[in-house]
């Protein structure tokens, strides 16, 4: 199988995630877009790992999966906190400070 078919699928997922991050304003949906990007990373890593016959890429992917789970847990805790204070998980409503 061609290496590139995996890499291009991964590039597509990554760019879809980038679009989501830029175009969404709900915190949970932005987080979902980031998850798409992280999955693109994992597909890259596993495909390269198979291509060069090295287990390092798979280990890397395992770390990415684990840490992504931890990140989502923390992120939803923060979204929950904001929902309680503002009654909305929309990013646009969280806009008291202007950078």
């Amino acid at each position: 199988m061609a290496l590139n078919q995996f890499l291009i699928l991964s590039a597509f997922l990554f760019c879809t995630g980038v679009y989501g991050v830029l175009a969404r304003r709900n915190g949970v949906l932005v987080l979902m877009s980031v998850e798409l990007m992280l999955n693109a990373v994992n597909i890259n890593l596993v495909a390269f790992s198979a291509f060069v016959r090295d287990v390092g890429g798979q280990i890397f992917a395992l770390f990415v999966i684990t840490i992504a789970a931890a990140e989502v847990g923390v992120g939803l805790a923060i979204v929950l906190l904001i929902y309680r204070n503002l009654d909305s998980p929309d990013l646009d409503r969280v806009d008291q400070l202007k950078g």
């Binding site: 990140e71 992120g75 923060i78 904001i82 503002l86 990013l91």
Partner: peptide, 15 residues
């Protein structure tokens, strides 16, 4: 709510 906002912005940029 300012602290909440600090957290969510920092978090989303971080991930």
């Amino acid at each position: 709510t300012k602290s909440n906002e600090a957290a969510i912005k920092y978090y989303l940029i971080g991930v």
